[in-house]
């Protein structure tokens, strides 16, 4: 535990992440103002006691909007990571177990195929075909997480398959599936946690990008990307309308990346060996 806090970047990342995750969690039960309440008389007010982060162009409280926006971003990113892990990890394990066979080929070439497409373009395609909504944004981002997890899992698992304890398990008569679950999976978990953190931050960025171009969560559900897009023309009139959602995206992604790096230092067995 003490080792964990030796890493300053991990600590900073954790704090930033907790601030935004906390804001999102609190918004489930309480927000300072109703985000659906439009109050034109109080539009574009700067930060004040009543509105710590000011109000937007329709007079809605910016702090409340950002808190609920955090919920949108985090929810989309988490589910997208779960989709990626849920499908990518089993595929990666299967490819490693059947390494060199046609199963491996099909899975990994399928991965290459998804990797080869520009991700934002496919996301736009998906949302254009099925309509713009938070759910479709999740699916679009999630699909691109699958090959990432499949690759990481397969790469790590391949070296593990050469280990003596796996040989021992095979000699004892365990099947490939059972070895994958009982011996391989526990030993790649650390790597997956690190990769998950990074994909999570990329997911938040992707969600902001999609909603910036109008393909993410639809109004009135707030989303950081759309807050940015909506307030662009106000940048000279009320800079806080652009500044706060922009900072929210920046700090959250920074926090998650720092945390990801810190966790990698702490958990990745390859780096641990290099240090030790």
């Amino acid at each position: 535990m003490t080792g964990m806090f030796k890493s300053r970047s991990l600590l900073l990342g954790l704090v930033l992440t907790l601030v935004f995750a906390g804001g999102a969690l609190v918004s489930l039960v309480w927000v300072p103002y109703d985000i659906l309440g439009v109050d034109i008389a109080n539009k574009m007010k700067g930060p004040s006691g009543a509105h710590p982060l000011g109000t937007d162009n329709l007079g809605r409280d910016m702090l409340s909007m950002l808190m609920v926006g955090a919920r949108t971003s985090i929810a989309v990113a988490i589910v997208a990571v779960v989709i990626g892990m849920g499908l990518g990890v089993p595929l990666g394990l299967a490819a490693a177990a059947k390494r060199g066979s046609w199963v491996d080929e099909v899975i990994m070439r399928g991965n290459d195929l998804i990797f080869a497409f520009p991700s934002l373009l496919i996301a736009i395609l998906i949302t254009a075909v099925f309509g713009a909504s938070a759910l479709n944004a999740i699916i679009a981002i999630g699909i691109f997480n699958i090959p990432v997890f499949a690759r990481v899992t397969r790469g790590a698992a391949l070296t593990l398959w050469e280990r003596e304890y796996v040989l021992a398990a095979r000699v004892a008569g365990k099947g490939a599936a059972r070895i994958s679950v009982e011996h391989i999976l526990p030993n790649v978990t650390n790597l997956l946690i690190v990769q998950g953190t990074i994909q999570f931050s990329l997911g938040i960025l992707a969600e902001a990008g999609l909603s910036y171009v109008g393909l993410g969560a639809q109004p009135p559900v707030p989303s950081w990307g759309r807050m940015l897009a909506d307030s662009q023309t106000f940048i000279t009139l009320a800079p806080h309308l652009v500044l706060f959602p922009g900072m929210a995206i920046l700090l959250t992604v920074l926090g998650l990346n720092l945390m990801g790096d810190g966790l990698r230092d702490l958990l990745d067995p390859r780096l641990r060996r290099a240090r030790g």
Binding site: G37, I40, P219, P220
Partner: peptide
């Protein structure tokens, strides 16, 4: 777009 958000709030 903006008018729609205001009207949705007023209708709500």
């Amino acid at each position: 777009r903006r008018g729609g958000e205001i009207i949705a709030a007023q209708l709500r």
